[in-house]
Design a binder for these strands. Structure first.
Lengths: 112, 112
DNA sequence: GCATAATACCTAACACTACTAGGCATGTCA
DNA sequence: TGACATGCCTAGTAGTGTTAGGTATTATGC
């Protein structure tokens, strides 16, 4: 079970990463995140929507309604240029933290 | 610059890791963390003491005063058994998150 | 001797964010 | 028709980090 601090710290970079692969809507993001993390992460709408809205406000994402499909309309989110830059910064920071933990725990923590 | 979310999420595991190498006092921990992270992390006492106190309260650490040295007394912190178990859990969680990011970003992010 | 800086410990008020516990609505299936 | 899945949404509450200081002792330079 991932601590809520680590969940909180990784939500934004994960959203940025998922949307870097293509536009998506919230419910689908939740399913993808659960699948990619092998079930380790089980986001709820209640935690994701406020983050999506804040990222939209920070101009990292842009949203649009899409109702071309059969069924109810979906709100698609797309990465902005600022969002792509934020993703690169997040990757850099994760790298720096990972190197710090590698020094603390030893190179066997290079998990791959 | 590490985001405050990532700083927050990594404070406890870093403290656990530093103390796993040997007992230490707060001011020294701050110096070690800055050195190990290559300057990426610059903790303040204001952020560290509340965390140390909470970890003590959660029985992850045990503290003692040590004034055998010349100079002012220092409060040394030591890892408890619960602290060691918490460290293992934190390592496991970091691994799971890292694997998730590796799937999202590609294996080139295995930084080592 | 005084001023400054480093060292060492400490914390309360405020700001911010996550969590919980729901809400609304439509479509599908038995 | 009822239960469930899907899709969007949020306010009140709880918890934690940040800021901006505090106390005290020792070391250093003038």
């Amino acid at each position: 079970m991932i601590t809520k601090e680590l969940v909180a710290a990784t939500t934004q970079p994960i959203v940025l990463s998922v949307l870097a692969h293509g536009d998506d809507y919230a419910y689908s993001i939740i399913r993808k995140v659960k699948q990619i993390s092998g079930g380790e992460l089980e986001w709820t709408e209640g935690m994701l929507y406020p983050v999506l809205h804040r990222m939209e406000k920070e101009k990292l994402l842009a949203a649009r309604w899409d109702s071309t499909d059969v069924g109810r309309p979906r709100r698609y989110y797309r990465l902005t240029k600022a969002g792509r830059r934020a993703l690169v910064q997040n990757q850099s920071q994760w790298k720096a933290m990972h190197e710090t933990f590698t020094k603390l725990w030893g190179p066997k923590t290079c998990f791959s």
